[in-house]
Write a protein that binds this DNA or RNA. Structure first.
Length: 676
RNA sequence: GGGCGAGUAGCUCAAUUGGAUAGAGCACCGGCCUUCUAAGCCGGGGGUUGUGGGUUCGAUUCCCGCCUCGCCUACCA
């Protein structure tokens, strides 16, 4: 509602400025006044015009207000303060707009909503259990996908799997050397773990940490040999068709399945799992290399430290070309850019960024090659596909997106920028413009949390406010452990409250609350804030948390249950605009109007979330709405209200709150329990 | 050295992208369960927005300097 009203007002204001002052404004700044007594929409436009028109802002504001005239949906316009123009909505009409159903954010405001949007998230190396950092990634990505879909975009969700990287190689080295297992024995182990209900990703978590230590645990000579073995293993895995590669495939596939199971606990699903192995074997890079050379993005370096490499100039680095070293008598700059990014090494192998460029050309449908596709994992309502050298004949098509979002942590912003730069250099400016590095900061542990978990902390780390987690060191909180712990805590509370006589129902509710708490916790921080993880905060269910919002939903449902009616009936019986106007006006009804107005903000918030790639805005909106409802709930007792007209109105208000809260929660991937 | 991000209440974070009196949660203190669920509500104390300048009607937000902190910056993958 509010989004529509803002657009209506903006259009009128532009017309007024044109008529009165012959001014063309691209956009009019509109904002929400700090207090309802100052109206619902405000604009400081008069301040901006003061200099240009050589008039006092207050005078301009008055002239504009006079010129606006009557506008559908608005009650009046006033000048306040030094020159603000405040717009007051026709509350009855506004409430009816909110009640009818919230119009979705206009697809016009979306990036390429007409085509496919591709969101890549999760992308955990398949060599160990997922940890809390991965949870933030997946929850952010999944929520953003829900937002895009709610706004009308067609979205494919991808989870990139680096199954041939050094991290997988490390675990394979662990199996071969520390565990001394053959491929057949690894198979047996996998079956054994499955039979006992144990988690292979947990097993690898420890083995990975042990192997990492082992690399540096011997004499200098031994360590050199171990490093060599690591490299050899990596190459064997890349080439495939050998026992080492077989072990890698067994392990990475089993761990991948575990990751999908973990994420499914949070309601997170994927459409496609592109794997590094296929990017290698289907020769994506070779196709990209030709294009990169043709476009001149890559050039062959003949001198300096990068001699013999194909390199790409970094943006902005051309300014400081380094001086030719070793010959001070040289007359200055030689034009060697030692800061250039190496894409192909002097030994002919391609770097990670090179492969990533090829992969992203595929994402935009620019590579001229495609994966094979196989079914991999079945969800209740969809199939998840995985890349294959030769796939099934019947399959959906992925890639060829018109806009992409890569949910990757902030530490990767440099390589991400390299890929974007390469696209731009190849002339794909439109694609580069619709390439979003959906960046976020890491989840770290507070020193206290690390100590609780039994890790030894250095004196230096103790002084810090947070300590970075490390899969290599086996330092971190595993995702499933956290989820289990959350469910145990909520289950104890649900049991103590006797929420339901049936244990199965209590378990279900406990899970919904636990997941709600976790997802909200990961979403309430804005992306570039480091989360210093602490069990105390994550296990909290009071205040600004998921359960607080879920609790509001449950309370509303109870009102309808005890009142023997339904939200649908309450909305169907909504009064005429004139009566609504009366019930929404006056000091004693300001809190009710605040609730309706907040409900009407939804599309505005959705648009803002997508424009800024920031789901935290919706999390905050949901919380504020729940707060508004709690306020309303304690002020007005609905079921004992004697005036039938007012009671019907209060019920309709509750119905709106329910619809908006449950809807916002669903977009955050949080379920609304029946009881708490 | 260079690049990016951050510094806001005791703690953890917001602030509609330059707007009106800088807001929440936690913690602390004091109230509220015979009324639709107390995972809740009401009230209270708490701030020189790191610092010094600048830009302007107006700065937490933009620019410059300085101080702290984090991350990134290999022909490893």
């Amino acid at each position: 509602m509010l989004l529509e009203m803002e657009r209506r007002l903006g259009r009128r204001l532009r017309a007024v400025l044109k008529e009165e002052y012959d001014l063309e404004m691209a956009s009019i700044p509109l904002e929400s006044p700090p207090d309802l007594r100052l109206g619902e929409i405000a604009t400081p436009i008069a301040f901006e015009l003061a200099r240009k028109l050589r008039k006092a802002p207050k005078v301009i504001a008055q002239e504009i207000v006079l010129a606006i005239g009557p506008l559908a949906g608005f009650d009046r316009f006033e000048v306040a303060g030094a020159g603000y123009i405040n717009a007051y909505l026709d509350r009855g009409a506004a409430a009816q707009m909110v009640a009818v159903s919230e119009p979705q954010a206009s697809p016009k405001g979306l990036p390429h909503a007409e085509g496919h949007v591709l969101v890549e998230h999760t992308s955990i190396n398949p060599n160990k259990a997922a940890h809390i950092g991965h949870l933030r990634n997946a929850i952010l990505g999944d929520t953003f996908v829900r937002l895009l879909r709610a706004a009308g975009s067609k979205v494919d969700v991808q989870n990139y799997i680096d199954n041939t990287g050094v991290q997988v190689a490390d675990v394979v080295v662990g199996f071969l050397r520390l565990e001394e297992k053959t491929a057949a024995e690894v198979r047996v182990l996998l079956a054994e773990l499955a039979r006992r209900g144990e988690r292979i990703d947990y097993y690898c978590w420890d083995l990975y940490a042990r192997t990492s230590q082992w690399y540096s645990g011997g004499t200098a000579e031994e360590n050199a040999g171990r490093s060599q073995m690591r490299l050899d293993t990596l190459h064997l895995i890349e080439h495939a068709g050998n026992e080492t590669a077989e072990i890698a495939d067994l392990i990475s596939t089993a761990v991948l399945r575990r990751h999908l199971e973990t994420m499914l606990r949070l309601g997170i699903e994927y459409d496609f799992l592109p794997r590094e192995s296929e990017i290698l074997h289907l020769k994506f890079w070779e196709a990209a290399f030709e294009k990169l050379k043709q476009s001149g993005v890559l050039y062959f370096e003949n001198e300096g430290k990068n001699k013999g490499c194909w390199v790409m100039r970094r943006t902005g680095s051309s300014a400081h070309l380094v001086q030719n070293q070793g010959s001070p008598e040289d007359d200055g700059l030689k034009g060697i850019d030692e800061d250039a990014k190496v894409i192909v090494r002097s030994n002919g192998t391609v770097t990670y960024v090179g492969k990533d460029i090829a992969y992203h050309l595929w994402k935009f449908g620019l590579l001229g090659r495609d994966f094979g596709y196989k079914r991999f994992f079945t969800y209740p309502d969809r199939e998840c596909w995985i890349s294959a050298e030769s796939g099934e004949p019947d399959h959906p098509r992925f890639g060829g997106a018109s806009a992409i979002y890569n949910v990757i942590d902030a530490r990767q912003s440099d390589p991400q920028a390299n890929v974007i730069q390469a696209l731009r250099g190849m002339g794909y400016t439109d694609q580069a413009d619709h390439y979003t590095h959906f960046s976020y900061e890491m989840v770290a542990l507070t020193p206290r949390c690390a100590e609780e978990l039994g890790y030894e902390i250095s004196q230096e780390d103790k002084q810090k406010s947070y300590i970075e987690v490390s899969g290599r060191k086996g330092f971190g909180v595993k995702a499933d452990d956290l989820i289990d712990k959350l469910i145990a805590a909520t289950r104890a509370e649900v049991d103590a409250r006797g929420t339901s006589p049936a244990a199965a129902v209590r378990q279900k509710i406990a899970e919904q609350i636990a997941i709600g708490a976790l997802r909200y916790f990961m979403l309430k921080f804005t992306r570039n804030s480091v989360i210093a993880f602490d069990f105390k905060d994550a296990l909290s269910f009071e205040g600004e948390t998921g359960p607080y919002i879920q609790y509001a939903v449950v309370r509303i449902r109870n009102i309808f249950r005890k009142g023997s009616t339904t939200p649908e009936a309450a909305l169907a019986a909504l009064a005429e605009a004139a009566e609504l106007e009366k019930r929404l006006t006056g000091d004693e009804n300001e809190d009710i109007w605040a609730l309706w107005l907040r409900a009407g903000r939804f599309s505005l918030v959705l648009e803002q979330c997508i424009a800024t790639s920031e789901p935290a805005h919706l999390a905050r909106h949901a919380f504020q709405l729940a707060q508004d409802f709690a306020n309303f709930y304690h002020r007005h007792h609905i079921l004992t209200e004697e005036d039938p007209g007012r009671k019907a109105f209060l019920l309709a208000t509750a119905a709106i709150a329910l619809r908006e809260l449950a809807g916002a929660l669903a977009l955050l991937g949080i379920e609304s329990p029946e009881a708490m």
